[in-house]
Nucleic acid binder design. Structure first.
Lengths: 242, 242
DNA sequence: TATTATTGTAACATAATGATACAATAATAT
DNA sequence: ATATTATTGTATCATTATGTTACAATAATA
């Protein structure tokens, strides 16, 4: 379970939501050639967590995940991928939630629904960093971007969840070319290559990269981009919806 | 949710189990050059379903999946892969379970836990067909193997779950070579190739296949296999544990 | 001992990928 | 204007991987 919009703090049974099941969202952004993750700070505690939420009794799981990602980013259409479920008992640790509820003036009963064992469905989201408005909630001081290589200490197994999300992103990037969900609508081949290099953690050869990407036939050349630099202007591309 | 060992049919609240969450197991076997799936027949109804089960309140999700697969096959160590979660409301259909409970002499209250909306964690299992003892349970007449290309009508979205499981198996087969979990301990290169051809649904070239598999360096040559055929005897291989 | 069917792998052909080279060009400097 | 600079787009060649053909090896049978 994760940082979440708790529907009603005075609702110790979690009515209206599926019990013991949560969503954790690893929301990736790309900025300054670095991969970023959106994280939440719980008010009046040192706890930092992934954005998360619960599933309404009659809500599609994917819809719930989209709701969680939407609420934290302000975006409507978001690329989401359900990459793993985390269901070990070792991840059960009610202490952070006790502290968080206490810090918000709630003295939870021992059987409070938030203090029970949770299984989490991990989704990762790819968003255009420039379009996101990180949005906290009343249980949180703040919500903001963190460099993937410089993460703070996170509650429970959220570090592991991010690691698994990144692994999944990496394997998919090669085959399905989902990367431009992290870029603005129009981008240069250099932008896309820099993104791939950051995600994969290695340098790529420019001619081979361009050849491979263009051979996929899913990019469209839009116009040139006059950057003001003293050199040839690169083409802009956009994703060709199929 | 799926065919399952229901812990206590007179337990209308599902006490001891996580509510609204189930496991569905697509147990693959390989026999006569065909992929098989283990399916359950509910007693006194025409319903056929995947083996399934629920998660105990303090049980690891993976342990619960292993328990389900173990109970139906009689095997202890089973290759399992958690490939997808099915969480749409469209899959909700309480009718089969009403009929099944009725057929077993239970008149369920409308709020019986089995009649609620369920989210299912899909696992696929790869087992050695020759070692499996298909084992039904008291709610079931029978439990047996079905050719993947000749499946009966299944309850709910179990057809879709099998389809997704097969897709996941296919993509993993190329990269991770998990296929020999479907074969006996020792097998010939021909056996392995036939398996790959069946799973991928296409013919492969023998020299290229052998070269690729051996270059992975995870097979060990054991001995020759004298089949009695009027031809050169093939080597037997076994998986080299790393 | 010849025949048959299948295996193991060499050898070559083709395709994919890795790496280098260089012309094109947009801004700036002379 | 013209030269200079940095970067882009792509041609070209090198290397590796994969697809394909060919054939010797061999276990049973004739």
């Amino acid at each position: 379970m994760a940082a979440t919009k708790i529907p009603n703090e005075g609702n110790p049974t979690g009515e209206g939501f599926i019990p013991n099941l949560a969503i954790d969202a690893v929301i990736f952004g790309f900025h300054d050639n670095e991969l970023k993750v959106l994280l939440m700070h719980y008010s009046n505690t040192g706890y930092v967590a992934l954005p998360g939420g619960f599933i309404r009794l009659e809500e599609d799981l994917d819809v719930a995940a989209m709701r969680v990602a939407s609420e934290r980013t302000g975006l409507k259409e978001i690329f989401l991928d359900q990459f793993h479920i985390f269901g070990d008992m070792t991840r059960f640790d009610p202490e952070p939630f006790k502290a968080i509820l206490n810090a918000n003036g709630i003295e939870p009963p021992v059987n409070h629904w938030l203090l029970k064992r949770f299984i989490s469905v991990g989704y990762f989201a790819l968003v255009d960093f420039t379009k996101v408005t990180p949005t906290p909630d009343k249980l949180f001081d703040s919500c903001g971007w963190y460099d993937l290589n410089d993460l703070p200490r996170l509650i429970q197994d959220h570090q592991l969840i991010i690691k698994k999300a990144l692994e999944s992103l990496r394997t998919q990037l090669d085959n399905k070319l989902i990367g431009f969900n992290l870029l603005p609508d129009n981008f240069t081949m250099g932008d896309l290559q820099a993104l791939h290099e950051t995600v994969l953690g290695k340098k790529l050869l420019r001619p081979a990269f361009q050849r491979k990407i263009l051979s996929m036939g899913i990019l469209e050349r839009v116009a040139k981009k006059y950057s003001g630099g003293a050199h040839k202007a690169p083409y802009l591309y956009r994703f060709l919806p199929k």
